[in-house]
Structure formats: structure tokens, C-alpha cells
Design a protein around this nucleic acid. Structure first.
Length: 423
DNA sequence: TCTGGGGTCCTAGGACCC
DNA sequence: TCTGGGGTCCTAGGACCC
């Protein structure tokens, strides 16, 4: 059987770890640029503030001053996530970290009651060690475990944070109550189409002839259907498996028209992407740069474009990635437009150990690698920006707004040790 | 005034091959 | 007038996820 551990209101819960005064209050965490709501406390949910709500629309639901709004601190969330996943990794087999706040795993026992007891203890342990409340669901398939974990989270009668869906009769009852749009893998498009056919619950979807689902939609939809029937066939690509592509992109804090300012952002994104590539010991075969105007400004001409460059030899060197990102940038940048967002993506990733050198390639890859290692070492030891290969201007005119940052928590003593977030 | 970022997989269609 | 069949690979775009 599969279990799913899911952190409750994760980003808000993380903020509460550092500031218990937030407990019991409506709290939302805002995306980059303080743009949209990306996490809500139960109190904020009760006020009707929807997920993804633009921050300036909060006033449509309640007096915005009643709501604590916080700029996201993803480094902090990643750290707490790592702690939770480490605990889980020690306790269960086959942990598949699916996202920053979720992981699937194999339940340790055949017996349902034994699993339940074990997992309830685990929920308590994670809360005690990390301070983040979690819920666990378990079932014969991942999709059903997902539904079970939602119930564990939402139903207040479930006090130990664990819910299981195992008996066929119980699964039927729950699926009849599950709206089709709530099923994992059924998005807006598919839900609308299914509703049009009168399929409005997970149960009705599970009862459809498989051939029909396959013919009307896709193999993905068919897999989802089989999962609801308790068959294990969802292909999960846990983040522990190497990435196939990496991207760094930002919406700028303001509209930029100056070429140098946008270019500065591109250099920054390319360096950051190459750094992540090296952290993963992977190399890229293509580098893509894209730029975009502001599609909310109907009074301005809109322009967006992207350009992909193929590398002679796969690389993770900042010099190479920045170089190609800039070549691509120069190919797509147009004067006379305003730019609101840009990004650099690398793809065609392969392990760095297997790189084949191109005969025509004259670059000295050995020396580049040694240089990058030295720079990464210094930056790791001192500060992330101690040594930079390509100078960036000191004013990041593209920098996103973050006006609701919580005060830095100097140190936090937690059961397992000391975290220092100052850097 | 203000609207995120980072991923994966699937499919259709074109290019190309024999 | 006649103008096959089948396969692979690549890419762009769509749908979905958190």
C-alpha cells in the first residue's frame, strides 16, 4: 500500500515555526513580487481567500488589514522540508519526494491497524521535531492515498492526522463524495469535459469503460482512472530523480525598457541555473532564454519571444551557460518594448560523468571545470555571491518586490539542532 | 498601483527515411 | 489519369501538478 504525507498549509506553517504569534490568525504567504497568494492558513481559507488570489484582490474577501501577508522565503521552506523528508526517510521504505511538502512511500505493514498506529506516531514525531503539522493518507494506489490524505487534513473528526482508504466499500463511498475536479490528475480542462458528459464524481469516472477514457482523452487519464480503481499505475517522478530541465525566471518588480537592465537579469538567471546544474552533477545540451512583456498592460505593445541554443558539448560551466543565454538574448531582444519577465532554461540534461567531447570543440573543459569547482567552493564557504564569474550591475533594477518579509530569525533551536537563516 | 515560479508528460504533426 | 505504407525522431504546444 502507498502512503502520502502532506504538510498542512506548508508555507504558513513554516512561518509559524518562527513566529508562534501567527497561530490562530489568518495568514497568507505571497508569491514572488508579492503577487499572488500561494499558501493560506485555515483562518485565511475560512475567510474565502482563494488559492492564487492576486494580493490586491484580498480586499474583495475581507478587510486586508485582518490578514497577515508575508513574502515567501523559499530557502527557509526548503530547509524545513528537507528536515521532514529526512525524518520520513529514516522511518519508511521507498520514499518518493513528490514536492516540497509531499512525499509518497510504502506503508510498512500488511495490517491496516498496525499501519495506522505507526503513521499516527509519525505524524506526532514530525510535528514535535520540526514544528510543522502534517497529514497522512494511505491506500492501495497513490491517487487514492492522495484522496485519503485530503480527508485526513480536512475532517476535524480525524484527530491523529491519519486516514486510510482500503476496504472497497469504503472506497466507493468516498469516491461518490469526491467531485471529479478534486481528483489528482484531473485538471480544469478534463473536469469540464467530463462534467459535460455527466461524469461529476470520482466514482462515475472510475466506472467509465477504460477504452472510452483512453480514446477520448489520453493514457494519463486512463492511468488516473485505473488508480481510482485501486490499481497501482501512476508514474511518479520523484524530485530525488535527476531533473530533465532546470529553469530560473522572474517577474521583474517593474517594467524594464533598458537593454542592459534586462541583460543583467539574464546573466543572473544563467549563473543561477548553471550553479544548480553543477549541484546536481549534470550538464545541459541546450540553453533557452525567453523574454516577455506585461500582458496585463493593454495600453502597451506586447512582445514575447524565446530562443534555444544547442551547445557543441554539454556543459554546466557558468561561462558557457551565460554565453549562450546572452547569444539567445541578443537574438530576441527588441528595442522599444517594455519587459516584465525573463528566464533561462537548460534542458537535455545528462550526468556530467558521461560527457563526450566534440572534436570541433576548442574550449578547455578540464580547466573550466576546475575553475567552477574552485568558485563554487569559495561561495559555499563564504557567501553565495562572494565570487561571480560575470559581473552584474550592483543595482538589480529587475529585482522582485518583497515588502512583507518576516524579520530574519537569527537562530532557531529545534530538537535536532541549530538552523541559521541569516545568510 | 498591484496578477508567481518551476517542473513533468503526452500528443499531434512535420521531416525524413526506406 | 495517376500520386503507398510504415517507421522513427523531433518539436511545439497543451495539460497537469505543487
Amino acid at each position: 500500500m502507498y502512503g502520502l504525507i502532506d504538510c498542512n498549509n506548508f508555507f504558513v506553517s513554516c512561518e509559524r515555526v518562527f513566529n508562534p504569534a501567527l497561530n490562530g490568525r489568518p495568514v497568507v504567504v505571497l508569491s514572488n513580487n508579492d503577487g499572488c497568494v500561494i499558501a493560506r492558513s485555515n483562518e485565511a481559507k475560512a475567510l474565502g481567500i482563494p488559492m492564487g488570489c492576486p494580493a490586491f484582490q484580498i480586499k474583495e474577501y475581507t478587510n486586508p488589514r485582518q490578514v497577515v501577508q508575508l513574502s515567501a522565503r523559499h530557502i527557509v521552506y526548503a530547509d524545513l522540508s528537507h528536515r521532514i523528508m529526512s525524518i520520513m526517510g529514516c522511518e519508511v521504505e521507498g520514499l518518493e519526494v513528490y514536492s516540497v511538502d509531499e512525499a509518497f512511500f510504502r506503508t510498512p505493514y500488511d495490517d491496516v491497524e498496525q499501519n495506522h498506529k505507526f503513521l499516527a506516531r509519525l505524524v506526532k514525531k514530525v510535528h514535535r521535531y520540526v514544528g510543522v503539522p502534517v497529514s497522512i493518507g494511505f491506500a492501495p494506489s497513490r491517487s487514492l492515498a492522495k484522496i485519503a490524505s485530503h480527508i485526513a487534513k480536512k475532517d476535524r473528526r480525524i484527530t491523529d492526522g491519519v486516514y486510510w482508504l482500503v476496504r472497497p466499500e469504503a472506497i466507493d463511498i468516498i469516491l461518490r463524495r469526491t467531485p471529479i475536479a478534486d481528483v489528482w490528475g484531473i485538471g480544469r480542462r478534463l473536469a469540464a469535459s467530463l462534467m459535460g458528459r455527466g461524469i461529476d464524481t470520482a466514482y462515475k469516472f472510475a466506472q467509465m469503460p477504460s477504452g472510452l477514457v483512453r480514446a477520448l482523452y489520453s493514457v494519463t487519464a486512463e492511468r488516473t482512472q485505473r488508480e481510482l480503481r485501486g490499481e497501482d499505475c501512476q508514474v511518479v517522478n520523484p524530485v530525488t530523480i535527476a531533473h530533465r530541465s532546470l529553469m530560473t525566471s522572474r517577474t521583474f518588480g517593474q517594467l524594464l525598457t533598458d537593454r542592459r537592465e534586462v541583460q543583467d537579469a539574464i546573466v543572473h538567471f544563467a549563473q543561477s541555473t548553471s550553479r544548480r546544474l553543477r549541484d546536481e552533477h549534470q550538464v545541459a545540451t541546450t540553453v533557452m532564454t525567453y523574454v516577455r512583456g506585461d500582458h496585463f498592460r493593454e495600453d502597451l505593445p506586447y512582445y514575447s519571444n524565446s530562443c534555444e541554443m544547442r551547445l557543441h558539448t554539454p556543459s554546466s560551466s557558468a561561462m558557457t551557460i551565460v554565453h549562450y543565454a546572452l547569444v539567445a538574448f541578443n537574438a530576441i531582444f527588441r528595442e522599444g518594448y517594455g519587459y516584465r519577465k525573463a528566464g533561462v532554461m537548460v534542458s537535455g540534461l545528462t550526468p556530467e560523468s558521461g560527457v563526450q567531447l566534440n572534436v570541433w570543440d576548442t574550449e578547455d573543459h578540464g580547466r573550466q571545470r576546475a575553475l567552477m569547482q574552485a568558485i563554487d567552493g569559495i561561495n559555499q564557504r563564504y557567501s553565495a555571491h562572494m565570487v561571480q564569474l560575470v559581473p552584474e550591475t550592483s543595482q538589480h533594477s529587475w529585482a522582485p518586490r518583497q515588502s512583507h518579509l518576516a524579520p530574519p530569525s537569527r537562530t532557531l533551536r529545534i530538537y535536532t539542532g541549530l538552523i541559521d537563516y541569516e545568510s
